[in-house]
Every structure is written in C-alpha cells, then in structure tokens.
Design a protein around this nucleic acid. Sequence first.
DNA 1: CGATGCATTGTTAGCGATAACAAGATCGGC
DNA 2: GCCGATCTTGTTATCGCTAACAATGCATCG
Lengths: 360, 360
Amino acid sequence: MRRAVTVLPGAGSRSGRESGYEMDVRSTRSPAMTDVAKLAGVSHQTVSRVLNDHPNVREQTRLRVRAAIAELGYRPNRAARALVTGRSQLIGIVAQNSTLYGPASLLAAFEQAAAEAGFAVSVGSVGRLDRESIAGAVERHLDQRVAGLVVIAPVASADDALEDMPAGVPLVTIDGDPARPHALVTVDQAAGARLATERLLRAGHRTVWHVSGPADWYDAAGRIEGWRASLEAAGAEVPPLVPGDWSAASGYDAGQMLARMPEVTAVFAANDHQALGLLRAFSERGRRVPDDVSVIGFDDVPEAAFLIPPLTTVRPAFDAVAHAGLDLLLGQITGENEGPERVVIAPTLVERASVANISA
Amino acid sequence: MRRAVTVLPGAGSRSGRESGYEMDVRSTRSPAMTDVAKLAGVSHQTVSRVLNDHPNVREQTRLRVRAAIAELGYRPNRAARALVTGRSQLIGIVAQNSTLYGPASLLAAFEQAAAEAGFAVSVGSVGRLDRESIAGAVERHLDQRVAGLVVIAPVASADDALEDMPAGVPLVTIDGDPARPHALVTVDQAAGARLATERLLRAGHRTVWHVSGPADWYDAAGRIEGWRASLEAAGAEVPPLVPGDWSAASGYDAGQMLARMPEVTAVFAANDHQALGLLRAFSERGRRVPDDVSVIGFDDVPEAAFLIPPLTTVRPAFDAVAHAGLDLLLGQITGENEGPERVVIAPTLVERASVANISA
DNA sequence: CGATGCATTGTTAGCGATAACAAGATCGGC
DNA sequence: GCCGATCTTGTTATCGCTAACAATGCATCG
C-alpha cells in the first residue's frame, strides 16, 4: 500500500505542514477528536456534539464533521468517554460456565441484541453457581466499570450473591427468583409445563408423569408446578415425581424405571436431554415411542428434530428473553424506568412426532 | 464491619480529617487514587507505584498504601488506565454464535484463563463465519480498544477477513489456517484422527469408514487427512468418504447407508453428534454396536459417556487450547514474543464401550 | 433601534490514571 | 565529614473525551 518515496535528507520534507504528510507517516496513533476538528475547521466540542446527536448543531456543520470523521476513519476512544462519563459501553453478563444449551443460546442471543444497541458484552463465566463464584464474577465486572450487569441466576445461591451488590448498578437477572427486588426476565416455566401436560392429556392419556430437573433450580420448580397444576385442573391423578438433574443419564435412569410400569403412557421431561435419555431407555426396553409411550421435552435443542422419533418439545424463545433483558437493562442505564420490572416470556409448543393419541 | 461510632454533632467531627468520616458519607463516588493517597499520607503517584509493583518503594510505605487501599475498598479505574496507556485489560474473542459444543467450551475455557491473568473477555459472536460478519465483529472489538483479539476461524472465509486487520493489534487465531501469518493454536486434528483410526485397525478391522465434517472446515480436513494417512500407512483399503455437516441428522443419514453394507465394521465419525446419529441408525437397522460395528467419535461431549453404548471418542483438550491461545496473546501484548507462533495441542483417546475386537 | 432570547460555536476544566522529570533523603567511599 | 550515586517520593503534564460556561451571531420584540 505505502508507496516507496524517496525523501531527500535535510530540510524541507518535514517542515511546514504539521498536519498533512506528517500525519500519514506517524500513522501509529489513531486520530483523535481534535484531528477531526482540525480537518473540519471546528472545535473538538462540536465534533463531540455531532457524535452524540446534540440538537443544536447546524446541518451544514454536521455534514462537514461527518465527512471529516469518515475521511480520517476516526473512531471515538471509549476509554476516554468512559472516564469522563463514568460509564462504559460494556454490559457484563454472568453465566454458568457450562455447555448447557439454554445458557449458551442465551449468551449468544444477548451478545447479538447488545451489539445492535451499540454495546459490547463482557462475559464472566463461573464454574459453579454458588455465592462466592457469582460474587467474584460480579466483582470483576464492576472492576471494568460495566454500564450494567446481567446475571443468569437459576438457583437461589446465585440470587443470594446479588444481595450485597452496590446500589446504583443497573442489574437484570434472568431466571432468578421473582421475590427478589431486582429487574427480572423469566420464561414462564409453569405455562410451558402446562402446554406440554395439557397436550398429553388432550391426546387421551389418563395422566402424565414428569421427570424433573434439580429441585433447587427455579426453572425446574416452575415446570413441576405447571405440570401439577394442569393435572389437578383436569382432575387427573398426580403420579410421583421422578427427579433428574438435566442430564441425559438421569433421563435414561428414569426411563429404565418408567418403562417397567405398563400404566405409564405419557411422560413430560424437564428438558430435551432428559427426554433423549428417556427415548433410549424406552427403545431398549421395547416400548415404542409414540405408539406405547408419548414423550414431550423442553428447550427445543437443535437435535430435537432429528431424534427418533422427532421430539415434541417446548421452546422457550431465548432470543425474546435476551431482548427483553437488554431492554430492561438499557432502561435502567438511561434512567428511564427506575423500579424493578418483571418480564415473563411465554414459551410455545413445537409439535413433532413423539406424541400420539391414546385411542389409536 | 463498620462499627457504630457515636459522633458528636458540631465542631470536630467533620473538620480536620478530610478523608475519614466525610468519605463514608458521600459514598456515591467510588474512591480514586488520590483518596487512597490522602489516607496513606503519600502522593497519588506512590499509590500508582504500589499498584504496579514498581521496585523503588519503601516496604513500610507499600504496606501503608495497601492498608489504605483495603480500608477504602479502592479499585483502580480501568478506563483511566486504558486512556493513558492506550491499552485496556480487555481481550476480545470472536466466535460463531452457535451452540456447537466445541466453540462453546472453548469460550468458557478462555474466559476462565483470562480471568486468572486479570483480563476480562468481551465476546463478539457472529451468525455466520463469512468475511463480513467476522470483519464486523472485529471492528466492534477494535472500537473497544481491546488489548488483543482471539478469533476462532475454522473456515477459510474467517481467515480471509483477518487479512486487512490493522497491524499492531495482538491477534491469535484458533483452528485457523496454519499458512496464515498470525499466531495460531490448533488441535492436531490429524493426530486425533490417527488415534481413532489406528485404534480401530488394532481391534482387527480390515478398514475404517469415515463420516466427515463439512469439507471447508480446517478441522474436518485435518481429520480426513489423518484418517486417510493411517489407513495408507497400515496398507488398508481406503473406502469412499461419507460427507456430513457436524449434525446428528447427517450422522443418521450416513448410518442408514452404512448399515446396509455388511462389510462395514468400523466407523470413525468426525464428531460426537454425528456418531450419535450413527448409533441410532445402526440400532434401528439391527446392527449392534459394538458387536457388529465399532464406532469412534470426536469431541467428547458430556453426553458421550451416557450414550448406548458409551462412546469411545477423541478428546481435544479445549482448556489446553484456551490456555495456549491466551499465553500467545499475552506474549504479544507484553511484547515478549514478536513473531507468529504455532501451538498444536495433541488430543487424547477416551476409551469407552463402542469399540470391540473383530475377532470376538 | 436597542434589548432579549435562542441557536450555534468555542473555551476551559476536569475525569483518574501513568510517564517524565525534579527534588529530597540516604548511603558508601574517600 | 563532604561528595556523587542511588533510593524514595512528589510535581507536573498528558491521554481523549464530555460538561459547564462563555461568547458569538441572528431573529424577534417592545
């Protein structure tokens, strides 16, 4: 790119235009606001005003400044801005260091939504969801002077860690405890569970068994609650709960048990991985899905459509959660909505082939 | 912590010590370096020296400053430091917005390693790995004045986007093209493939079939290469390649085909999801694993141990990749190692129950 | 036609840290 | 006990930006 230029030694070449040729040479430093100002023939403050969309700038000036910005390839120094405003354009997100499908998709959706709003996302993943781990990750983010914080807090211990958060930091929790005093976005777990349970009852099943997630997770608790409520509302018997831990292994174990009971014709698994374990166990024990047993999962993981049979499941709309969470957070950051707010996202049922009518 | 202290109203309490009681009251502003300096009875520069471990500070002073830091709960303002040094303590990471197990674990491992080194990680996930998406994510990070950049670039188009990167920004690519001129960390895909292929040959199989990943991924190409090399080295016939796309669905399709060929007794799948699809297809068509067909996967996803049968697979040691990548990057940031370096991580074979000797 | 007001622009003063230099304290060697 | 070298500390300038205020121009109004 840079052409070879013969420069005569001695006077002349470096003198005179401080801004022109010189600028190109020491291209190591990226242009600052004053460079733009000089080129556009205005003060740096006017450049700042253009950048921040202040109303009182003449259209003509605005255009000239924008042209100068484009010509120099200027980009504002976020550190300087953060220093003077006390706020960065960074959003911190604390999530469990896991490859669970839910958290992973949530993180991705969040990053995307934040990028659209001009924010960057700093992740602080934690190994475990205990109080110390969460507190540590929060500290690290506060260190970075994040503009706001999103914490995925699916268990009580995570919420606990948030109690002694310094006030004034915008905070949104995802999947947290609705009883806590911060802004919150959750998936309506109970509604999702009702969707699944009612679908199975509608297919003619006398009752529906449930392989649940770990009881200390709010998600799991909500799904249990919705499942039980549906059964009771329909006057169906509530069978004993089969506890699991989100893993395929626990679903398989549950399936090994359920497959031995002829009366079990419909199972609602608290997530798709457990459902996968169920499917395998049933197939091993010769119970055909959906002919003998109907199964519904939760999450709609990418593989769900390719299982045998394709899995009917509840889809939690992670991107809606992410967008809602970000909106809440941005509202707090800009100071528009003060009080904590709650957003509840309604899941939908994705019908595939793992449910059959009992009459068939 | 803070003991209840009776403060007499009137004179005395507020006067004199500008730093003591007053500080606690206007706790809205977090303490700055000058506050610490005042409390410790030194200049702010000395505080800075203590913070940055400069050699020429008297031990006694150092202790006094540290005590003041602790008492005030002072934490340095990263923005101010970034402004004056021109470098943030932020590392950007560009990865595909996906829930593929590999990238997701890599991200998590990276964040952890970076946190240990005192860096925060800003993620820029992209929907697709094309040139524009990558370039956009890189831009956003440069905007944030990241200290360094890690790009997971498993396909050529991702590398392409890095060509017109401004020089001087520390950059490490993961899974990229070794022919490119930047620092690089890769898993030795070929070695992993050899591990798998040789294991199957050693079990007495005449040859090994391969269900590959998408051909434009370097990972997939490396695994194909290793597989082919092993067969040729052993003088075994090289069967036609069965192409896949990482998904369980493609593994299932491949399995439907392979199950019809009696001569197929050993299959190496390019990842565990494809292996999962294979297992299902084989089970559907009555070919028992491992009695009739042996299968090996790649990635060691959490479910691998719980499949039926538990899957023998190649484990790429994502945390080693992350650590190596971070070391390389930190080396560039501190200016220790200039030239591009390559680190190749050797994978290991995790033996489970999906491989059997052909003699049995 | 001078005063008043608003729109537009410029000037100055920080934000909180590090870097460069200056200055006082301390020390060894003669 | 004096001198220069070294250790330790303080002072000042600066990074690039925004906030607050000042200053200009121009239209509006009594």
